[in-house]
Design a protein around this nucleic acid. Structure first.
Lengths: 212, 212
DNA sequence: ACGTGTGAAGTCGTTCACAGCG
DNA sequence: CGCTGTGAACGACTTCACACGT
């Protein structure tokens, strides 16, 4: 039931795990009881073998001749990915993106709770952002520790991002979701994922040109 | 100078191309004249061999003993990725995410121009969203064609996403950036990229658990 | 018969290591 | 000497194909 030797699992398989979970939650909403690797694969344009192999890295969840029980697989995947616990998340940056994220519904059901919002712009500190009061960066270290926040979302301009990242790491944050268009340098043991919308559009532009 | 046989280029290499360009633009801002594969790789935590191999898929841009001229490489990569032209983009969804994207600075310099915003919520249609007036979905097809929009950003709730995607494809859109937490089905020849913030946090949660 | 789990085979991507240019 | 461009070696990921459980 616990996680198997992590080094042996392909990274792409872990990424797909989140997608399996998302699809399964949809099937669950439709009261689907069981699902085969073929059907789950089709909804994501993957082969059945791929789905079985990915799931098998983490355990034996299916029954030959039947498939996977949706409810069981959902709870197994939630446990593996950690979304059966609560995760306190701090948000740095009260600009456009920060504002959107602070009011995004869809975190809560996954166990992610934004617990504080920070910005170093004096004109924003003290103001409300959704249900939060924006706090100055000087309070960041103390707040991270008092709130036991393990994850952070970084939604600040590019030129301040590395500096804030350093502060977050020093405060004890373990994972960082970076919306700034820069590559961050962090110590080993700190996880970083990046979302760069401009890069995504660039990739789309390239892909569409291939068909002309 | 034109794009080489596309099928022969690894997909991950294309993704990294955008990151190379982003870093190079930073170096350019700092008036850096030339850069080696080693230095470019270090800024992104990649090996020098990886950088050289990736760039070599698209041409011979460097000079032995010297490295790459930053200005040249930037303009080459822009041309390859298509950001040396203009791309008209329509945005569907005037909620939190749509609002943030409509005022995001950082698209323009990459050649991406949002040219219209749509929503099917009657309470939003007609209202301003930044500099845009929100238009009803019924105008989408006509607008896409009149504005020659080739890309679309989808920032609507999950349950409406596939439906809107179908309309966008029918209207002639060639690439789709999907912020809704569902997997979209589109015809061959249409490019889709997805951004799911909850999935990103899930991956961070998993990665941080590996170190405990 | 249906469908999983899994070694084995095959494909794809990365790293190595070096010839050759500046 | 520094550094690129690139075949060859290596390793990682995916697909195949089948034994086995239901």
């Amino acid at each position: 039931m616990e996680l198997p030797r992590p080094g042996s699992i392909p990274e792409p398989a872990v990424r797909r795990l989140s997608l399996y979970l998302r699809e399964l939650e949809n099937f669950q909403r439709n009261n689907r009881l069981t699902i085969s690797s073929k059907q789950l694969g089709e909804s994501l344009r993957l082969t059945d073998a791929q789905v079985r192999k990915d799931l098998a890295y983490f355990g034996q969840f299916g029954r030959p001749g039947i498939g996977y029980r949706v409810v069981d697989l959902v709870s197994r995947l939630r446990h593996i990915l950690g979304t059966d616990r609560d995760w306190n998340v701090v948000l740095v940056g009260a600009g456009n993106i920060g504002k959107a994220l602070s009011s995004y519904r869809g975190f809560g059901s996954k166990g992610f709770n934004i617990v504080a919002v920070f910005d170093n712009d004096a004109s924003k500190v003290g103001k409300r952002l959704g249900t939060f009061v924006v706090r100055p960066l000087s309070e960041l270290t103390r707040a991270v520790q008092e709130l036991s926040a393990r994850l952070a979302i970084l939604a600040v301009p590019a030129d301040g991002a590395q500096d804030v990242a350093d502060q977050l790491v020093a405060a004890g944050i373990r994972g960082l979701l970076n919306f700034a268009p820069v590559s961050l340098t962090v110590p080993k043991g700190i996880a970083v994922n990046a979302v760069d919308v401009a890069v995504q559009l660039e990739q789309l532009a390239f892909q569409t040109m291939l068909f002309d």
